[in-house]
Protein backbone atom coordinates (compact mmCIF):
# COMPACT_ATOMS: atom_id res chain seq x y z
CA UNK A 1 0.00 0.00 0.00
CA UNK A 2 2.62 2.51 1.12
CA UNK A 3 4.84 1.37 -1.70
CA UNK A 4 2.13 1.99 -4.26
CA UNK A 5 1.35 5.50 -3.11
CA UNK A 6 4.89 6.54 -2.34
CA UNK A 7 5.71 7.91 -5.83
CA UNK A 8 2.46 9.90 -5.93
CA UNK A 9 3.06 11.25 -2.42
CA UNK A 10 6.60 12.19 -3.32
CA UNK A 11 5.53 14.04 -6.46
CA UNK A 12 2.83 15.96 -4.57
CA UNK A 13 5.32 16.94 -1.85
CA UNK A 14 7.85 18.07 -4.44
CA UNK A 15 5.17 20.09 -6.19
CA UNK A 16 4.10 21.81 -2.96
CA UNK A 17 7.69 22.49 -1.99
CA UNK A 18 8.50 23.95 -5.41
CA UNK A 19 5.39 26.10 -5.26
CA UNK A 20 6.25 27.33 -1.78
CA UNK A 21 9.82 28.17 -2.77
CA UNK A 22 8.59 30.01 -5.85
CA UNK A 23 6.30 32.24 -3.80
CA UNK A 24 9.04 32.91 -1.21
CA UNK A 25 11.94 33.60 -3.54
CA UNK A 26 10.29 35.29 -6.52
CA UNK A 27 8.51 38.01 -4.57
CA UNK A 28 5.30 37.52 -6.55
CA UNK A 29 2.55 39.14 -4.46
CA UNK A 30 0.10 36.90 -2.66
CA UNK A 31 -2.92 38.07 -4.66
CA UNK A 32 -1.26 36.86 -7.86
CA UNK A 33 0.30 33.64 -6.67
CA UNK A 34 -0.64 32.73 -3.12
CA UNK A 35 1.58 30.42 -1.12
CA UNK A 36 0.42 26.91 -0.34
CA UNK A 37 0.03 27.83 3.30
CA UNK A 38 -2.24 30.79 2.60
CA UNK A 39 -4.35 28.60 0.35
CA UNK A 40 -4.52 26.03 3.12
CA UNK A 41 -5.61 28.56 5.72
CA UNK A 42 -8.18 29.99 3.28
CA UNK A 43 -9.40 26.44 2.82
CA UNK A 44 -9.79 25.95 6.58
CA UNK A 45 -11.65 29.23 6.90
CA UNK A 46 -14.01 28.32 4.03
CA UNK A 47 -14.63 24.98 5.70
CA UNK A 48 -15.37 26.63 9.03
CA UNK A 49 -17.87 29.15 7.76
CA UNK A 50 -19.53 26.40 5.72
CA UNK A 51 -19.30 28.31 2.44
CA UNK A 52 -17.08 25.75 0.73
CA UNK A 53 -19.32 22.83 1.56
CA UNK A 54 -22.39 24.78 0.54
CA UNK A 55 -21.02 25.72 -2.89
CA UNK A 56 -19.47 22.31 -3.44
CA UNK A 57 -22.79 20.64 -2.70
CA UNK A 58 -24.52 22.87 -5.26
CA UNK A 59 -21.95 22.11 -7.97
CA UNK A 60 -21.95 18.42 -7.15
CA UNK A 61 -25.74 18.33 -7.40
CA UNK A 62 -25.56 19.98 -10.83
CA UNK A 63 -22.91 17.52 -11.94
CA UNK A 64 -24.72 14.44 -10.70
CA UNK A 65 -28.08 15.49 -12.11
CA UNK A 66 -26.43 16.50 -15.39
CA UNK A 67 -24.64 13.17 -15.55
CA UNK A 68 -27.80 11.21 -14.87
CA UNK A 69 -29.83 13.12 -17.46
CA UNK A 70 -27.04 13.12 -20.07
CA UNK A 71 -26.18 9.47 -19.61
CA UNK A 72 -29.82 8.40 -19.63
CA UNK A 73 -30.62 10.21 -22.86
CA UNK A 74 -27.35 9.18 -24.50
CA UNK A 75 -27.81 5.53 -23.59
CA UNK A 76 -31.39 5.26 -24.76
CA UNK A 77 -30.75 7.18 -27.97
CA UNK A 78 -27.42 5.40 -28.54
CA UNK A 79 -29.10 2.03 -28.25
CA UNK A 80 -31.85 3.04 -30.66
CA UNK A 81 -29.28 4.40 -33.14
CA UNK A 82 -27.16 1.27 -32.87
CA UNK A 83 -30.20 -0.85 -33.63
CA UNK A 84 -31.62 1.19 -36.48
CA UNK A 85 -29.54 2.31 -39.45
CA UNK A 86 -32.54 4.30 -40.70
CA UNK A 87 -32.77 6.29 -37.48
CA UNK A 88 -29.03 6.86 -37.56
CA UNK A 89 -29.23 8.21 -41.12
CA UNK A 90 -31.98 10.64 -40.13
CA UNK A 91 -30.41 11.87 -36.90
CA UNK A 92 -26.66 11.77 -37.45
CA UNK A 93 -26.45 15.12 -39.34
CA UNK A 94 -28.03 16.83 -36.33
CA UNK A 95 -25.81 15.00 -33.90
CA UNK A 96 -22.65 15.87 -35.79
CA UNK A 97 -23.77 19.48 -36.20
CA UNK A 98 -24.51 19.73 -32.50
CA UNK A 99 -20.92 18.70 -31.83
CA UNK A 100 -19.55 21.39 -34.13
CA UNK A 101 -20.90 24.01 -31.69
CA UNK A 102 -18.86 24.17 -28.50
CA UNK A 103 -21.08 24.04 -25.44
CA UNK A 104 -19.27 27.13 -24.13
CA UNK A 105 -20.71 29.11 -27.03
CA UNK A 106 -24.32 28.24 -26.27
CA UNK A 107 -24.00 28.27 -22.49
CA UNK A 108 -25.03 31.97 -22.22
CA UNK A 109 -28.05 31.22 -24.37
CA UNK A 110 -29.09 28.36 -22.13
CA UNK A 111 -28.76 30.55 -19.07
CA UNK A 112 -30.99 33.17 -20.73
CA UNK A 113 -33.56 30.54 -21.59
CA UNK A 114 -33.49 28.50 -18.42
CA UNK A 115 -32.55 31.07 -15.81
CA UNK A 116 -29.45 31.44 -13.68
CA UNK A 117 -30.51 28.67 -11.29
CA UNK A 118 -29.46 25.04 -11.17
CA UNK A 119 -31.52 23.97 -14.20
CA UNK A 120 -29.38 25.71 -16.82
CA UNK A 121 -26.23 24.14 -15.33
CA UNK A 122 -27.76 20.69 -15.27
CA UNK A 123 -28.68 21.06 -18.94
CA UNK A 124 -25.22 22.32 -19.95
CA UNK A 125 -23.67 19.49 -17.99
CA UNK A 126 -25.99 16.94 -19.63
CA UNK A 127 -25.18 18.31 -23.09
CA UNK A 128 -21.45 18.00 -22.60
CA UNK A 129 -21.79 14.48 -21.17
CA UNK A 130 -24.20 13.38 -23.88
CA UNK A 131 -21.94 12.96 -26.88
CA UNK A 132 -19.10 10.75 -25.62
CA UNK A 133 -21.60 8.46 -23.91
CA UNK A 134 -23.77 8.36 -27.04
CA UNK A 135 -20.89 7.49 -29.33
CA UNK A 136 -19.56 4.81 -27.02
CA UNK A 137 -23.01 3.31 -26.55
CA UNK A 138 -23.39 3.00 -30.31
CA UNK A 139 -19.92 1.52 -30.76
CA UNK A 140 -20.45 -0.82 -27.81
CA UNK A 141 -23.79 -2.17 -28.96
CA UNK A 142 -22.58 -2.53 -32.55
CA UNK A 143 -19.58 -4.52 -31.36
CA UNK A 144 -21.71 -7.30 -29.86
CA UNK A 145 -20.74 -10.43 -31.82
CA UNK A 146 -23.57 -11.62 -34.10
CA UNK A 147 -22.75 -15.19 -33.09
CA UNK A 148 -24.05 -14.43 -29.59
CA UNK A 149 -27.33 -13.22 -31.06
CA UNK A 150 -27.52 -16.53 -32.95
CA UNK A 151 -26.91 -18.38 -29.71
CA UNK A 152 -29.68 -16.51 -27.89
CA UNK A 153 -32.09 -16.87 -30.80
CA UNK A 154 -31.44 -20.60 -31.02
CA UNK A 155 -32.56 -20.74 -27.39
CA UNK A 156 -35.70 -18.73 -28.22
CA UNK A 157 -34.59 -15.97 -25.84
CA UNK A 158 -36.79 -12.88 -25.48
CA UNK A 159 -35.66 -9.37 -26.49
CA UNK A 160 -35.28 -8.45 -22.85
CA UNK A 161 -33.12 -11.52 -22.21
CA UNK A 162 -30.95 -10.70 -25.20
CA UNK A 163 -30.52 -7.18 -23.88
CA UNK A 164 -29.63 -8.12 -20.31
CA UNK A 165 -27.63 -11.25 -20.98
CA UNK A 166 -25.76 -10.24 -24.13
CA UNK A 167 -25.99 -6.63 -25.22
CA UNK A 168 -25.54 -5.00 -21.83
CA UNK A 169 -22.54 -7.03 -20.64
CA UNK A 170 -20.90 -7.14 -24.07
CA UNK A 171 -21.02 -3.38 -24.55
CA UNK A 172 -20.38 -2.40 -20.94
CA UNK A 173 -16.63 -1.99 -21.35
CA UNK A 174 -16.90 0.49 -24.21
CA UNK A 175 -19.85 2.17 -22.52
CA UNK A 176 -17.93 2.74 -19.29
CA UNK A 177 -15.07 4.17 -21.33
CA UNK A 178 -17.52 6.79 -22.58
CA UNK A 179 -18.84 7.36 -19.08
CA UNK A 180 -15.30 7.94 -17.83
CA UNK A 181 -14.83 10.74 -20.38
CA UNK A 182 -18.33 12.05 -19.68
CA UNK A 183 -17.78 12.12 -15.93
CA UNK A 184 -14.70 14.34 -16.23
CA UNK A 185 -16.38 16.56 -18.80
CA UNK A 186 -19.40 16.99 -16.55
CA UNK A 187 -17.30 19.04 -14.11
CA UNK A 188 -16.38 21.39 -16.94
CA UNK A 189 -20.05 21.63 -17.93
CA UNK A 190 -21.20 22.70 -14.49
CA UNK A 191 -18.41 25.27 -14.12
CA UNK A 192 -18.99 26.77 -17.56
CA UNK A 193 -22.64 27.23 -16.63
CA UNK A 194 -21.80 28.80 -13.30
CA UNK A 195 -19.23 31.15 -14.81
CA UNK A 196 -21.85 32.53 -17.18
CA UNK A 197 -24.17 33.49 -14.37
CA UNK A 198 -24.85 31.95 -10.99
CA UNK A 199 -25.66 32.78 -7.40
CA UNK A 200 -23.85 29.80 -5.96
CA UNK A 201 -21.58 26.88 -6.79
CA UNK A 202 -17.83 26.54 -7.12
CA UNK A 203 -17.84 28.53 -10.36
CA UNK A 204 -19.56 31.36 -8.49
CA UNK A 205 -16.97 31.07 -5.71
CA UNK A 206 -14.23 31.18 -8.31
CA UNK A 207 -15.58 34.38 -9.76
CA UNK A 208 -16.20 35.91 -6.37
CA UNK A 209 -12.61 35.24 -5.37
CA UNK A 210 -11.52 36.78 -8.64
CA UNK A 211 -13.51 39.97 -8.13
CA UNK A 212 -12.36 40.40 -4.55
CA UNK A 213 -8.71 39.66 -5.31
CA UNK A 214 -9.14 36.73 -2.94
CA UNK A 215 -6.77 34.61 -4.98
CA UNK A 216 -6.33 31.93 -2.29
CA UNK A 217 -10.10 31.38 -2.53
CA UNK A 218 -9.76 30.91 -6.29
CA UNK A 219 -7.15 28.26 -5.63
CA UNK A 220 -9.33 26.56 -3.07
CA UNK A 221 -12.17 26.41 -5.60
CA UNK A 222 -9.89 25.06 -8.33
CA UNK A 223 -8.48 22.35 -6.09
CA UNK A 224 -11.98 21.38 -5.01
CA UNK A 225 -12.93 21.04 -8.66
CA UNK A 226 -9.93 18.83 -9.27
CA UNK A 227 -10.94 16.69 -6.32
CA UNK A 228 -14.48 16.39 -7.70
CA UNK A 229 -13.23 15.36 -11.13
CA UNK A 230 -10.87 12.79 -9.60
CA UNK A 231 -13.67 11.44 -7.44
CA UNK A 232 -16.00 10.97 -10.40
CA UNK A 233 -13.25 9.41 -12.45
CA UNK A 234 -12.49 7.09 -9.54
CA UNK A 235 -16.15 6.14 -9.23
CA UNK A 236 -16.24 5.02 -12.85
CA UNK A 237 -12.98 3.13 -12.34
CA UNK A 238 -14.61 1.35 -9.42
CA UNK A 239 -17.51 0.35 -11.65
CA UNK A 240 -15.04 -0.93 -14.23
CA UNK A 241 -13.14 -2.93 -11.63
CA UNK A 242 -16.36 -4.41 -10.35
CA UNK A 243 -18.02 -5.30 -13.65
CA UNK A 244 -15.11 -5.88 -15.99
CA UNK A 245 -13.09 -8.29 -13.89
CA UNK A 246 -13.24 -10.79 -16.77
CA UNK A 247 -11.17 -8.45 -18.93
CA UNK A 248 -8.00 -8.13 -16.90
Amino acid sequence: MLKRFFPILLSILTFLLGWDLLTRLSGIPNFILPSPLSVWSRFLRAMQDGSLLHHTAITLTEIVLGLIVGVLFATVLGYALAKSRALEKVLSPYLVASQAIPVIAIAPLLVIWLGDGILSKVVICALIVFFPVLVNTIVGVRSVPTALYDLMNSLHASRAQIFWKVEAPASLSVFLGGLRIGATLSVIGAIVGELVDAESGLGFLLQLGDFQYDTPMVFVAVFTLIALALMLYGAVRLLENKFLKWQN
Binding site: A147, L148, L151, S154, A157, V166, P169, A170, W246, Q247
Partner: peptide
Protein backbone atom coordinates in the same frame (compact mmCIF):
# COMPACT_ATOMS: atom_id res chain seq x y z
CA UNK B 1 -36.05 -26.85 -28.07
CA UNK B 2 -32.66 -26.67 -29.67
CA UNK B 3 -29.12 -27.14 -28.50
CA UNK B 4 -26.66 -25.66 -30.94
CA UNK B 5 -22.89 -25.91 -31.04
CA UNK B 6 -21.31 -23.40 -33.37
CA UNK B 7 -18.10 -23.77 -35.28
CA UNK B 8 -16.42 -21.45 -32.77
CA UNK B 9 -17.19 -22.26 -29.14
CA UNK B 10 -19.10 -18.97 -28.96
CA UNK B 11 -18.91 -18.58 -25.20
CA UNK B 12 -19.64 -15.37 -23.36
CA UNK B 13 -16.23 -14.10 -22.26
CA UNK B 14 -17.66 -12.40 -19.17
CA UNK B 15 -19.25 -15.57 -17.86
CA UNK B 16 -17.43 -18.34 -16.05
CA UNK B 17 -17.63 -21.93 -17.27
CA UNK B 18 -20.56 -22.76 -15.03
CA UNK B 19 -22.38 -19.53 -15.89
CA UNK B 20 -21.92 -20.20 -19.60
CA UNK B 21 -23.24 -23.71 -19.23
CA UNK B 22 -26.37 -22.71 -17.36
CA UNK B 23 -27.33 -19.96 -19.82
CA UNK B 24 -30.10 -22.03 -21.51
CA UNK B 25 -31.66 -22.73 -18.13
CA UNK B 26 -31.60 -19.03 -17.29
CA UNK B 27 -33.33 -18.32 -20.58
CA UNK B 28 -35.94 -20.92 -19.60
Amino acid sequence: SIGMVFQQANLMPWRTVIENIKLPLEVN
